[in-house]
Design a protein around this nucleic acid. Structure first.
Lengths: 200, 200
DNA sequence: GACACTGGAGAGTGCCACTATCCATCATGG
DNA sequence: CCATGATGGATAGTGGCACTCTCCAGTGTC
């Protein structure tokens, strides 16, 4: 299929597809001549993935590139898969520690996590920002939130481990992480309505 | 306190404070002459709130204005409070229905929610986008996610109802919704690491 | 051989959160 | 009493980002 047909199939303008090719988030087609290339179903899927990540996931195009590069690289062992995916998604964030609050929380929960990793640090920053804005995030509240998100993570792991191949598992972790986030946040609001109605 | 002192206290440049005044997200100080005004502690707190919402919450400045307007308006009754806060936070989103998947899900869970509200619609859109990107979101998976977020919502409700005044409850709902979202997402990633380590 | 289409590259657009400039008006010190 | 400097107010400029447009020479197609 030619680029104009790819544009028609995906609903994305040709100009934007060229832009994606330039930015390296869409793999080039197999050239059929010096001025034309052939695109297949994998390109259609890639375009859908890019649009989903950029539009609904809020990922910048440069971030999409590192993600698709990780998806194309030979998949790591099942144990390293999650770490690799997380490092890809977190990007080269700051390397400061998680902060005392988060360290205490993780120890209290007994979670065996990478305490100096990018997400523990991100958690510390998010907690600090929320508290600076006036949110009453006591240690007990954080623990209850953490236990609820642990249940979410169990579902995530079930989905990833049910994948047929390591490559598919990687894809599921990345897409599931980025694209399911908005689903969870929307569920939170709807659940608030339900809980409020039930208590009334 | 003068605007330069407010800038010093909050670490925000004077130019930016003027910009916030123009955009209506920072309330004007009490004028002491035609070329000076007096700012108090409530302005310091407001600036912190605005910075938190814009920087860490990803809320556009125009959205911050509707939020602070809702916070300044006379607080609604306790039963309407959540709905008012949600409508403020959701903005004038599309008014299409939630979609069949979400309607089935909510009915299966037995949640009494505003099925035509903005968040049910947002949930439908998020689920569609995630599926378009290739996430395997079966109805069963959605139900498990929903139950976990229900636990989160119970914590949210506890926090809001523990507020001393309706105005404080409103503040807690808004800040808790916007600023706790990143905390939850960070917790999800950390919980994934913990769950993965435990299963290894 | 006319014409549309292709890949490639540079420059322009629109949005947004600032950020800088300019100016008349006070506020204060010498 | 006037020079200096901060203030509020308005206008315009900046930088980042995701496109989007324009141009080009080289095909494929009729």
């Amino acid at each position: 299929m030619r680029i104009s047909q790819l544009a028609e199939r995906t609903g994305v303008p040709v100009h934007t597809l060229k832009y994606y090719l330039r930015e390296g988030v869409l793999q080039p087609g197999t050239p059929t001549s010096r001025t034309s290339a052939d695109y297949g179903e994998e390109h259609v899927e890639r375009v859908r993935l890019v649009r989903a990540l950029v539009e609904h996931g809020g990922v910048p195009v440069a971030g999409v590139r590192t993600i698709v590069e990780a998806l194309e690289a030979p998949p790591p062992s099942r144990h390293e898969l999650l770490g690799t995916a997380h490092c890809t998604l977190a990007g080269p964030g700051g390397d400061e520690g998680p902060g005392e609050v988060v360290a205490d929380l993780l120890e209290g929960l007994g979670w065996r996590v990478w305490a100096d990793g990018p997400f523990a640090a991100a958690l510390g920053r998010a907690v600090e920002a929320a508290r600076a804005a006036g949110a009453p995030l006591s240690e007990d509240v954080l623990r209850r939130y953490a236990e609820a998100m642990r249940a979410v993570a169990e579902v995530d792991l079930d989905l990833a481990l049910a994948a047929g191949s390591p490559a598919e598992a990687m894809h599921r972790v990345v897409v599931g992480t980025v694209m399911v986030d908005p689903v969870l946040l929307a569920l939170r609001r709807v659940a608030q309505e339900a809980a409020s109605a039930e208590r009334a």
